[in-house]
Structures are given as structure tokens and as C-alpha cells.
Write a protein that binds this DNA or RNA. Structure first.
Lengths: 159, 159
DNA sequence: TCCGTATTGTTATAACATCACATTTGAGTT
DNA sequence: AACTCAAATGTGATGTTATAACAATACGGA
């Protein structure tokens, strides 16, 4: 798995384009319908490596000519999350585009309190440890969330 | 650290009493004020190994003669969380009494979808792995949450 | 083309959380 | 005992996040 890009300078336009392209391919392959609202929702999330609240997404969808009511945003967001194209960040009650689409993953999220960027990092060891803890008590994990709040490398060095 | 009790039969009255006693001692030691609302709030959370929404807590506080407005519950809950007597379960937007009060901990939570019980389990290895992942990307963790949803041992065997 | 399902739109409302400000309580002082 | 200041509580109003319910529409397959 790659290094997370959220906290480092990178060709973001390309990064977003690649994610969009991945979504299209995945949709085609799995018979999903990447409809206009859904596509636009993903575009909106891909604009930045931040998590956006549903209402923030909704505003922009409305501005783009889609419906103006909460379910419009929630449905599109739920679709993206369900198909691994976005993640829900529980700590923020918000959503972020998936930064490593395609790679089988259940990442950990690192949320910078200073710049609001959210990075998705490989969490194989963390998952393994969590699975171990679950096994120890006989618990069967269906899904889990691992989220950390703190300071990203950039904000740490520019206080 | 002990085995989590949430998923296993145990002397819950004693379990709650012990937690309450711990809170009293901790309050005395640290000069905290375990006022009536706060005490009652903790009692409410201790009734079950479940997470309760703030409004659920509020209802019961009101029934006990305390204020009827949201801040009443939120303030008491925030106090308990701040001092390690309760935890906030982000995934549920709810609160649960701390089941291992006193032991320095940053536990993982296991939430049973069937019976709603929430167990707090030691997560030393999980934290270590998370710290490792953070270090790898230069992120400084301030706080983090590790939560898993699934089936507890009891519900697994009684489908 | 027709049918049934998935998707979208809209209204309404539920659930969760905080702000602002008045009032009371309590510990430490005079 | 009265005084003072800070902490804690109560309350009304409001902000934010999320879902229910149902009508209208679009879409893919028979």
C-alpha cells in the first residue's frame, strides 16, 4: 500500500482524476450505476483531502443543479461508502473520498486538528491486533473504525 | 487488565457498585466534585453495559428531578468522559460508563449489533500498532478511537 | 414497448449537540 | 457570619446531523 498523500504535496489534480477513473472502472466492472449525483458527489469529496459534512456536500450538489434536501446527499454518500469509494469519518460526522480505491483495505484514519486534512493509512498491523483482541473475547467483528486525531507532519513543523 | 464483563454473566450490581465507589475515591483524591447530577448520570450509565444517547440519559435525569434541557446531560457526560469515568462511543453517538475505571487505558470498544452491549477491551497491542502507523507518516496522535461492531460471543451462540 | 426495480426529489421530522445568559451553589476569605 | 469569586446548574433558543415516508421519474431487461 502506498504512503498517504493527504499530508504531503502531490499532484492532486492527477490524484483526483485517478480516483475518478478508478470509480468508473469499478462501476463498469461491478455493474454499479455511477449516476450524475453520485459522480458529482465523489468529485466534490475528491476536491480536497478533507472530510466534508453531508450538508456541505448537499450545498454543493444543490449548486450543481441537484436536489436540495438532505437525502440527496446522504444517499449518494451512502452509495459511495458502501462501494468503497468513500469513507465515513465517525469522529467528524463527515465523509472523505477513498484515497486508495481498489486496494482491499480497512484503513486507519489520521485527522489533523490544524489543517483538517484526513489521511488514510495502511493499518494491517492495527487490524491484526484488533482481530486478536476480538478473538480473545470471542467477538466477531463485522466492521470497525480506527481513527486518530492529532497533528500532521506539516502542521507539526509549521506551528 | 481484566477480561471485559459486558458479554459475560457477572455480578453486575457489584460491578456497578465498585465503579461507583471508584468514582468517589477518584473524585476525593483529585479534588473533583462528584455532584448529584454527575453521580446520578454515572449511576444511569452503570445500569447496563450499553451506550446511552445523551437524550436517553437526559430523560432519566429529568425523571430524577434534575433539569430537563440537553446541556444538563451533556455537561454531566462531558465531565465523566473528561475524567475517565465514562467513554464516548463515536459510532453510536452515545456514552458508556467506563468498565475499567482507574486502570490507565485507552481501550478498544466492541459493540454487539444484536444485544447492544458494549465491551471495553484492553488494546495495548492495537495502540502500539496505531502508534507505529502514525510514526511512519510523522503524525502525532492526540487521541484516538478504536471501535468494532459485530456479534458478541453470547449472541453468536444464540442466533 | 412494457414492466418492475432502482434512483431521485420533496416534505416532514427525528436525533444529536451547542450557545447564551440567568441563577444558584460552594469553597475560601474577611 | 457575611463576602467574593469561580464553578456548576437551569433554561430557552438554536444549530447540526440523519432518517422516514411517499410521489415522481429513469433505466434495464423481458
Amino acid at each position: 500500500m502506498e504512503e498517504p498523500k493527504a499530508f504531503t504535496k502531490h499532484d492532486h489534480a492527477g490524484c483526483a482524476r485517478a480516483a475518478m477513473r478508478h470509480a468508473e472502472v469499478a462501476a463498469a466492472e461491478h455493474g454499479l450505476r455511477l449516476t450524475p449525483v453520485r459522480r458529482r458527489t465523489l468529485e466534490i469529496l475528491l476536491e480536497e483531502h478533507r472530510a466534508l459534512g453531508a450538508y456541505e456536500v448537499l450545498e454543493r450538489l444543490a449548486a450543481s443543479g441537484f436536489g436540495t434536501q438532505p437525502p440527496v446527499a446522504y444517499r449518494a454518500l451512502d452509495f459511495l461508502v458502501e462501494h468503497g469509494l468513500a469513507h465515513r469519518i465517525r469522529r467528524l460526522n463527515a465523509f472523505a473520498a477513498c484515497a486508495q480505491p481498489g486496494t482491499a483495505h480497512a484503513p486507519a484514519f489520521f485527522i489533523c486538528e490544524s489543517c483538517d486534512h484526513v489521511a488514510e493509512a495502511p493499518a494491517k498491523e492495527v487490524r491484526a491486533a484488533l482481530d486478536g483482541a476480538a478473538e480473545a473475547i470471542g467477538f466477531a467483528i463485522a466492521r470497525s473504525s480506527i481513527e486518530a486525531v492529532g497533528q500532521c507532519p506539516t502542521c507539526r513543523s509549521n506551528p
